[in-house]
């Protein structure tokens, strides 16, 4: 019994300590004096890795999700003769929820896991130690550009996802099911508000990006440097960041749209 309680205590202490280490890592990477001249090319390279290479999956998913939503929405709305509201339905769901959330989940799976594995392997092959012995701080050199690249890429991916989704909805709703194109756009325009809908979606995606890249880089940096340790860390990144995204989404939605 005592052992059991001690076990719970130890597990929690380990969690708190690990959170402390993650925070220290973040500060070491971000607060450290910025070396813009050196870091900009590194960050651009990382935007290529986490952003550009995620583009295809984001565009394809956005297109299909927009198309499916138009199909489902149409069958429901047409029953009330309100198929004209298809535009705002598709646009609002994408901008407020699906855009940021689905992009974040795909990003966690596509880019987050790759980040963890990459940094874990760098640790296992002594590349991080080697940097340290060369008097180069791996937090600044390796972690910081990846953090920034993720924070920059995610909102852009989210914008692209939502835009493609709205076009996909147009493709199915207007071109296929025959909703009037004018009303698809004009009712959407009269409903969607820039600040409330688009900006809030971007803010969400920034928060998600921060959480995902933080988890991903920390899990790699803190991984046990063996093949088993890295595979475990990669799985943890995907699971933990997906859960964090969904949980945070609820909190953010409640804050942004819940109470008028």
């Amino acid at each position: 019994m005592l052992d059991w309680i001690a076990g719970i205590g130890a597990a929690n202490i380990a969690k708190v300590r690990s959170f402390g280490r993650a925070t220290l890592m973040l500060f070491g990477a971000v607060i450290a004096k910025p070396q813009l001249v050196k870091n900009v090319p590194l960050t651009i390279k990382q935007i290529y890795v986490v952003g550009v290479q995620s583009l295809l999956i984001i565009v394809v998913s956005g297109l299909f999700i927009g198309m499916v939503m138009a199909l489902q929405g149409y069958t429901i709305l047409v029953g009330y003769g309100a198929e004209g509201s298809l535009g705002p339905m598709v646009a609002l769901s994408l901008l407020r929820e699906l855009g940021p959330v689905v992009t974040a989940l795909l990003f966690a799976g596509r880019a987050g896991s790759a980040l963890t594995a990459e940094i874990g392997l760098m640790k296992a092959t002594e590349q991080l130690s080697s940097l340290e012995m060369m008097a180069i701080d791996p937090l600044r050199r390796i972690i910081a550009p990846r953090l920034w690249a993720g924070m920059i890429s995610m909102p852009m991916l989210t914008l692209i996802f939502s835009a493609v989704g709205i076009l996909g909805g147009h493709l199915v709703g207007v071109d296929w099911l025959g909703v009037d194109s004018g009303s698809y756009w004009s009712i959407m325009q009269s409903t969607v508000e820039w600040n409330k809908d688009v900006m809030n979606g971007i803010i969400k995606s920034l928060v998600f990006a921060f959480v995902i890249v933080w988890i991903a880089t920390y899990k790699g940096y803190d991984s046990v440097p063996t093949s088993e340790g890295i595979s475990k860390a990669t799985t943890q990144t995907v699971v933990l960041s997906s859960l964090a995204v969904l949980g945070l989404d609820f909190v953010l939605t409640a804050l942004m749209f819940g109470i008028e």
């Binding site: 009330y80 309100a82 198929e83 004209g84 409903t191």
Partner: peptide, 9 residues
């Protein structure tokens, strides 16, 4: 109203 239950304008 656009449609039976649609947006009002």
């Amino acid at each position: 109203t656009s449609g039976l239950l649609g947006e009002q304008y």
